[in-house]
Structure formats: C-alpha cells, structure tokens
Amino acid sequence: MRNKLIIIFSFILLIIIGIFGQNWVTNTRTTQSKIQTSHMSPIILIPGSSASVNRFDNLLTKLNVHNQHHDILKVQVKKNNQLVYSGKIRSNDDQPFIIIGFENNADGYNNIKKQSKWLDIAMADLQDRYHFRNFQGIGHSNGGLIWTRYLENYYDADNLNMTTLMTLGTPFNFSESSSQRRTVMLKDYIEKSSNLPSSLIMYSIAGTEDYTDDGIVPVQSVLAGKYIFQKRVKSYTQITVSGDDAQHSSLPENKEVMRLIQEHILSQTDNNDFRKPK
C-alpha cells in the first residue's frame, strides 16, 4: 500500500513540476529571445559621490542637441533596494540614456561596495523591463569605481554585454598621488581584474588643472586604472584633457569629453558589430 502511495505522490509531483516548469521555460524563453534579438543598447551613466540622478542633465541636453534625440530615464536606488524610476524610453529608441543614482551616494570604499550591489539590482531590473543585452557605461568620478567593482563582482557575461566603458576623472587609487602607495581598494580591483570582460573597450579620461590633479583627484590616481584594465580588456585608452573645463566637477561638461562621448559611445549606433554576443 505504502509503495503505491509513494508512486502516486511521485506522479502528482511530476505533474505539478511539469505544469509550472513549462510555464517557467516559456516565460524564460520569451524574455531571453527578446534580449537576444533586442536592438536597444542603452548608455548607462553613474554619477560620482554626493551627486544625484540629475548630475548629467547639462551633458545630456547638449548631446541631444548635437545628435539625434535620445530618451532619458533616471533610476534611483533606495537604501532598501527599492527602485524609483522617472522619465521613459520609447520602444524605437535604440540608444537611450539611463542614469542610475543611489540614495546613499556617500564617498568611501564601503559605500562603493554597497553601491555596486545596488547597481546590480538596478541592472537586473532594467534588463527585465527593456530586454537589452548590449550597453555602454559612463562613470563620473566614483561612478567609474562603482562600474569597475560591478564588472568584477556581479556582471554576468551570459546575460549582458558591456561594449564600452568610459570613466571621467575616476580615482582608481583614491586620493593617493603615488602609484607606489596602493590603496586597499586598488589592490582589490587588481586582484579581481581577471573577471573583467575581455571584449570591453575602456577609456579612462583624466582632467588636469595644474599637471598634477584636476582640483580634486590626482592624475596619478586616474592613471592607476591601467593596473586594473590594461591587458585584461580588449583595449584600454588613457586620455588627458585640459583647458577651462578640466576641473574634476566640470569634466562631464568639458567640450573635449563631449566629443569623446560622441565619437566613442554614441557613434556605435552605426556599427552593428558591437551587438554580436561574445
């Protein structure tokens, strides 16, 4: 009797798993198909510490004047992992701008660790909503550190494909002006640099006011990014800009930086190669 009961129980269990499993497979297939065939390749921007999701308003307004108009979506990640969206994306916009900001936007390595985790939550939700696979990233100041930690610890190359990353005045060695004195964060980043996507094209942009720093971040700290990215990603390019708007906080509005974004990030809409999955 007991053996018959156990067989009936197994049979019922199989039917339940079969029905709900099929439902899961169908939903997963639909979502993955949309991701696989998606033409959307958003440009995702992360502001530096203390800045809000409005940090790039000037830059995006100027970029939208010079180029075809792209939609702007802002996402704020609350401390409790909740996401607050503002703005919208048209379904036919292949390269919208998405700005991800954090309620806790404080400076410091511990906060960067938390912000990277929140970035992962936001990325998963954005992919669920918009079904993109390819994207490009821009990070101003600590925003570049958040991207780097995300790529080394959370990024899943099976689901996403970050084609280009551009960091603006990102202090890879915090405020250390000597590359000989490596901070804990830089050591951690170097240690896990093998996790960086090998197909990534990386541009690190430094600003100089007086040959040594951009007013806040030492140039040497920005240059320390080479220890993390060089030989780990497809290409690593270091660019230094100077002039009137080369001060750390003005970098996103710097004309040269805007030109670099237009040239290396926005122009990719015309190049279909980057859409190919790895």
Binding site: L14, I17, G18, G21, W24, V25, T28, R29, Q32
Partner: peptide
C-alpha cells in the same frame, strides 16, 4: 531550452 535547476530528468 534552459530548464529550471534540479528538475527531474524525466521531464
């Protein structure tokens, strides 16, 4: 297609 982890191989 990808199926959920730990599904009975019968299915």
């Amino acid at each position: 297609l990808i199926i959920p982890n730990n599904v009975p191989n019968l299915l």
